[in-house]
C-alpha cells in the first residue's frame, strides 16, 4: 500500500518523467518502465510517458489524461496501457482518467521533443510562446533545421498536428500544435 501522496500535478508541476523516478517504490518504478515502452498509437516514435499522457503512477493505479476531447486514440491508448500492465504482471493496477488539469504540450518531455524531431515532427513551442495562436514563431524544419518555414494548414492529419512547409529545403512537415 502506498501512502496517499499528493500527485505532482496538483501543484501545477508536470509529473516526473524520464529519469526522475528515484523517490518511487520498486513497483512504481517497474510500472513506469513498462509505460515508457508503450508507444502513442498515432505517433509511435514517442511513448505515453514522453507525451505527458500519464499523469501519475502509484502501486494501485495509473492516472492518464486525454490529449484532445475527441482524440480517437484515447481508447487505443488505454487498451495499450492495459495490455502492458497485464503483460508485466500488474493486472491489479487500475487505469483512471482525469480531465483536470487539461493536458498541455508543455508536458511533453525534452526527450519526447527530441524523439518527435528525429521522427520528422517539429515539436511545439513551450510556455508563453504557446499562448498566442496568431503570430506564432516559425517552426524549425525537422529535416534541415531552417527557420524559413511557413504554415500551410493549422489543422493536419491528426488533431494534435498542423501542416507546415520549409522554404529552404522545400519539404512539408508536421508541427505538433501548441495546446
Amino acid at each position: 500500500m502506498v501512502t496517499a501522496q499528493a500527485p505532482a500535478w496538483t501543484a501545477g508541476v508536470p509529473p516526473a518523467s524520464d529519469g526522475a523516478i528515484d523517490a518511487a517504490s520498486p513497483a512504481v518504478q517497474a510500472v513506469r518502465a513498462l509505460l515508457a515502452n508503450v508507444p502513442d498509437p498515432e505517433i509511435p516514435a514517442v511513448s505515453v510517458i514522453d507525451l505527458g499522457i500519464v499523469r501519475d503512477v502509484s502501486a494501485l493505479r495509473v492516472l492518464i489524461t486525454p490529449t484532445y476531447t475527441g482524440c480517437p486514440a484515447t481508447l487505443a491508448i488505454e487498451q495499450a496501457i492495459r495490455a502492458a500492465l497485464d503483460g508485466g504482471g500488474f493486472a491489479d493496477v487500475a487505469i483512471e482518467t482525469t480531465l483536470s488539469p487539461p493536458w498541455s504540450t508543455d508536458w511533453i518531455s525534452d526527450r519526447g521533443r527530441e524523439k518527435l524531431r528525429a521522427y520528422g515532427i517539429a515539436p511545439p513551442p513551450k510556455g508563453a510562446a504557446a499562448a498566442s495562436l496568431k503570430n506564432q514563431a516559425p517552426a524549425e524544419c525537422p529535416r534541415c533545421g531552417s527557420s524559413e518555414t511557413e504554415e500551410i494548414s493549422r489543422f493536419g492529419s491528426t488533431p494534435c498536428k498542423a501542416l507546415w512547409r520549409c522554404t529552404a529545403c522545400a519539404e512539408p512537415f508536421d508541427r505538433f500544435k501548441c495546446h
Binding site: Y68, T69, S100, P102
Partner: peptide, 9 residues
C-alpha cells in the same frame, strides 16, 4: 473540467 479542456480546442 470539461470546459477547461475544451476551451483550448
Amino acid at each position: 473540467a470539461i470546459a477547461a479542456k475544451a476551451l483550448k480546442e
